Simulated scan of single mutants.
Amino acid sequence: MTTTPIGRERDGDGGAKAPPSLLYLVKRLELAVRSHLEEVVRPAGVTALQYTALTVLERHDGVSAAQLARSSFVTAQTMADMVRALEKRGLIRREPNPASRRELLILLNDAGRELLAEYAEPVRRVEERMTAELTARQAEQFRAALGTSWRALSREG
């Protein structure tokens, strides 16, 4: 089987096969983004997943570990390990939830905010590179389509 310049495989008879599924394309994009993000944040001593968790806290400071795990797309166990690592680095802190004494809220420290500020531009350049061949309108439509697709899959049912 050979691959054509536009990424379609050819079957044994030379006919073009169907294009890759959207699920495949989304996963391939996610892996490419993660790889580039890992490269960018490696000098800070954090992983792409840790950086993502910090950006979640930047937008929604003072969340539970379970909420942070869901918003960061990781399991509760992975988040528990991540929280310990980020707390040890002094990038976050945990405080008791005034509404529920058993729950700890996770908050961004000044060092975490500084890290995010320092890496905001290099991370923005990754996104810019990803959308470089799109017009501004196409990039906005892409953003909207991704949001709509996520909401559709997030609904129960």
Rank of each mutant, 00 (worst) to 15 (best):
A16I: 15
K27W: 10
Y24M: 05
A16T: 12
D11Y: 01
E39K: 06
E38C: 07
L25C: 03
A48G: 08
V26L: 11
L23G: 15
A16V: 14
V26C: 00
K17A: 11
G12C: 06
L37P: 00
T47K: 03
P19C: 03
G12S: 12
R34G: 01
S21M: 07
K17M: 12
K27I: 11
K17Q: 14
G15P: 00
R28D: 00
G14Q: 08
P43L: 00
V40K: 03
G15T: 13
S35N: 11
P43K: 01
A16Y: 15
A32P: 00
D11G: 06
G14T: 11
R28N: 02
R42G: 07
E38R: 07
G14I: 12
L37R: 09
R34W: 05
Y24R: 00
R28H: 06
L37D: 02
L22D: 00
L23V: 09
D13N: 13
L31F: 08
L25R: 03
L31S: 02
A48F: 06
S35C: 08
P43Q: 07
E30L: 13
S21A: 10
V46H: 01
R42H: 09
G14R: 11
R34H: 05
V40G: 08
A18W: 10
V40M: 06
E39C: 02
K17W: 08
A18S: 15
P19D: 03
S21F: 13
S35A: 14
V41Q: 01
P20M: 11
P19W: 01
P19V: 00
D11M: 01
T47M: 12
A48C: 09
V40T: 07
A18M: 13
G15W: 12
R42K: 15
R34S: 04
E39A: 12
S21P: 03
L23N: 10
L29I: 12
A48W: 04
A16E: 14
H36T: 12
